[in-house]
Structures are given as structure tokens and as C-alpha cells.
């Protein structure tokens, strides 16, 4: 019991990933502006943020693809700038787009990665077969990847990252564009990996995803960490549901907002005749809100309770919506497809 527990649950373990004052500048654009966080080994850490917040840049620095302009980053105690070749032996990366060769079969893709990560020859085929089975790709294993659906390619991409059994895994928006079923399956796989001791850093635009998977979440906005907490605390602070009340006319909405602030210590965001209240549990809050409003004959015309989107979290943390200053104007942000 003694030796085992000491290795599996170190009391003050050195972080698997440590990032200190990380900065990255591309010409005039400041992508990262002093990012700090640490990821304990064997946990999932979520980087939450919209496009352009710096999530991918952080991952690319940690996976030695780009060099930081400032600060330090370490993977299992190895500096990514000083010893990039050593870091590459510790990591697996699955990027935003499925980075697999469309002309090779799934099996050939995995074998190639096995070869390039110096997996001994006799282990390449069994490893590929294992991963293909685990990612539900065995039936299509010998078909060229260009015949695959988007979800299958994405699964293969994650499988490719796992070929060398890396102790630290980076997943850049692993479920973007996946159907709900594949998303849930991938979440399950990530949980299994973590149970086996892998450390996972994943980026996501979905609050729900970070909540389901991560032990700790950092919210990035414009290259800075604006929150770094457990999903539980984050939710308590920011709410996971949003109550939307359509009050009909602006003056009614203003009165209702004042009333709710006064009676329920809620501070709704007013947008014309619409009130938004973030809350940990919108349907419970709904009862209180309706009672309070009813008493003053301020019955809402429309009522909706929805899951908080990243946009809502952003608004709460930064005071403006994600699309206010995001560099990519073509990007729309919404909750996970349901």
C-alpha cells in the first residue's frame, strides 16, 4: 500500500504541464499576453475560449510547433524551448483539423506514426490494431481515409496522437464538428485515458465539455487567463443556465431588472426588452423570478431557460461578448449542438 499510493497519488506532485508568463506575438498581433497555469499529472485541464483567444497558440507552443516570444513552458519538467526534441517524446497532439493522410488507410496512418515515433517494429501492428478497435474504426481500417466521414477522421486523428502512448496528450478542440454521439464516445475515451494516468490538456469552445471532462478550467480572453478554477466553482460564479425573459417593452424590462436586483439580488443583463439571468439552475430561479414579477404585475411575455454558452461566460468574466473583439469576424459561437 505504501509504495503504490506514493507513486499513484503524489501529495505535492510536480505539474505535468507548467506555463509561466507565456507570451506570443505575431507581427502586430498579441496572441498570448502573460499566460500562467499548471496542470497536475493524471488530470484533464480545459482551456476555454472563443476563436482568437489564444488556445491554439498555447497548444502549439507546448507541442514545440512554435516558439514563445516570452515566458516559459514545461512538459513533465522539460522545457519546450530548450529541449524540444525531448518534449516531442512525451506528447501526443490531435489538432483542430484531422491531420491524417487522406490517401493512406487508417492502419497505414497509425503504422506511419508508429514508425516516426520510434515504436519498435514488432509493436506497431498490434498498437495500430488496438487503437483501431478502441476507436471503432476496425471495420474501415483498410480503406483510404479520404472515404471517411468527418467524425471517423477525427477519431483517427486522436488515435494517431495516442500511438506512442504519450504521458501528456494535447487535444485542440477535439469534438468541434462531431455529432453528439461521437462526442460522447470521445469524452468516454478521454476519461479512460486519464484513469490510466494520462494528463490531458484540451481546448474547447463548449462550457459543457469543459464541465464534463476537466478537473480544472482556465478561461482565455484575448491572450490572457481571465479565470482559472474548478468547473464547480466556475459554474457557481457564472451559472450554467441562462434565464431569458422577454418583457415586451423597454420600460417594463427596466422596471423588472430593478425589481430583481432589489428582491432577489440577481443582476440581470438587459438588452432592450430582454432580460438575461445567468444561474446555476435556471428552472429553480424561474419560480422565484416569476413570483417576484407577478407581485408587481410584470409578467414576462416570453420565457426561456437555456444552457449557458461560452458567450455568457465571457460576458460575465470580461464584460463584453466574444464577438466584440474577436479577430475572426466569420466565426459564430454557440453552445454544443444538441
Amino acid at each position: 500500500m505504501t509504495a503504490e499510493s506514493a507513486t499513484t497519488q503524489p501529495a505535492a506532485a510536480r505539474p505535468a504541464i507548467r506555463v509561466e508568463g507565456l507570451g506570443k506575438r505575431f507581427k502586430d498581433l498579441v496572441a498570448l499576453d502573460g499566460v500562467d497555469f499548471a496542470v497536475p499529472p493524471g488530470t484533464v485541464f480545459g482551456l476555454l475560449g472563443p476563436n482568437g483567444a489564444g488556445k491554439t497558440t498555447t497548444i502549439r507552443i507546448l507541442t514545440t510547433i512554435v516558439r514563445p516570444s516570452a515566458g516559459r513552458a514545461e512538459v513533465l519538467g522539460t522545457d519546450v524551448v530548450a529541449r524540444p526534441a525531448a518534449v516531442r517524446r512525451l506528447i501526443g497532439l490531435a489538432g483542430q483539423y484531422a491531420a491524417v493522410d487522406p490517401n493512406l488507410t487508417a492502419r497505414e496512418n497509425l503504422r506511419l506514426i508508429g514508425r516516426l515515433t520510434q515504436l519498435p517494429r514488432h509493436r506497431r501492428d498490434p498498437r495500430a490494431a488496438d487503437l483501431l478497435a478502441r476507436f471503432d474504426l476496425a471495420a474501415a481500417a483498410d480503406r483510404p481515409v479520404r472515404t471517411y466521414s468527418g467524425g471517423m477522421r477525427r477519431r483517427l486523428d486522436v488515435a494517431a496522437a495516442l500511438v506512442p502512448e504519450p504521458p501528456v496528450l494535447f487535444l485542440d478542440e477535439p469534438t468541434t464538428g462531431l455529432d453528439p454521439q461521437s462526442r460522447t464516445a470521445l469524452w468516454e475515451l478521454i476519461r479512460e485515458l486519464v484513469a490510466e494516468g494520462t494528463t490531458v490538456l484540451l481546448t474547447t469552445q463548449y462550457l459543457e465539455e469543459a464541465d464534463r471532462l476537466a478537473q480544472r478550467v482556465a478561461v482565455l480572453a484575448e491572450g490572457r487567463v481571465v479565470a482559472d478554477d474548478t468547473p464547480h466553482n466556475l459554474k457557481a460564479r457564472l451559472g450554467t443556465t441562462v434565464l431569458e425573459l422577454g418583457m415586451g417593452e423597454d420600460p417594463r424590462a427596466a422596471r423588472a431588472a430593478a425589481l430583481l436586483t432589489d428582491r432577489l439580488r440577481q443582476r440581470p443583463e438587459r438588452d432592450g426588452a430582454l432580460l438575461r439571468l445567468p444561474s446555476p439552475d435556471g428552472s429553480l430561479l424561474l419560480m422565484d423570478v416569476l413570483h417576484a414579477l407577478e407581485a408587481e404585475r410584470l409578467t414576462p411575455r416570453t420565457i426561456a431557460v437555456r444552457e449557458s454558452s461560452l458567450d455568457d461566460v465571457y460576458l460575465a468574466l470580461t464584460g463584453h461578448r466574444t464577438d466584440d473583439r474577436a479577430p475572426d469576424p466569420g466565426t459564430t459561437l454557440e453552445g454544443p449542438p444538441s
Partner: peptide, 17 residues
């Protein structure tokens, strides 16, 4: 374009390969 280059650059393989 496909992103395959990104993956290669994160692998412990020779830079010239």
C-alpha cells in the same frame, strides 16, 4: 494545408525527414 505538417512537427522525428 491539411495540417499533417503540424503533426509531423510535433513528432520526435528528424527535422529534414
Amino acid at each position: 494545408q491539411t495540417g499533417l505538417m503540424e503533426r509531423f512537427r510535433s513528432l520526435p522525428m528528424a527535422r529534414s525527414a
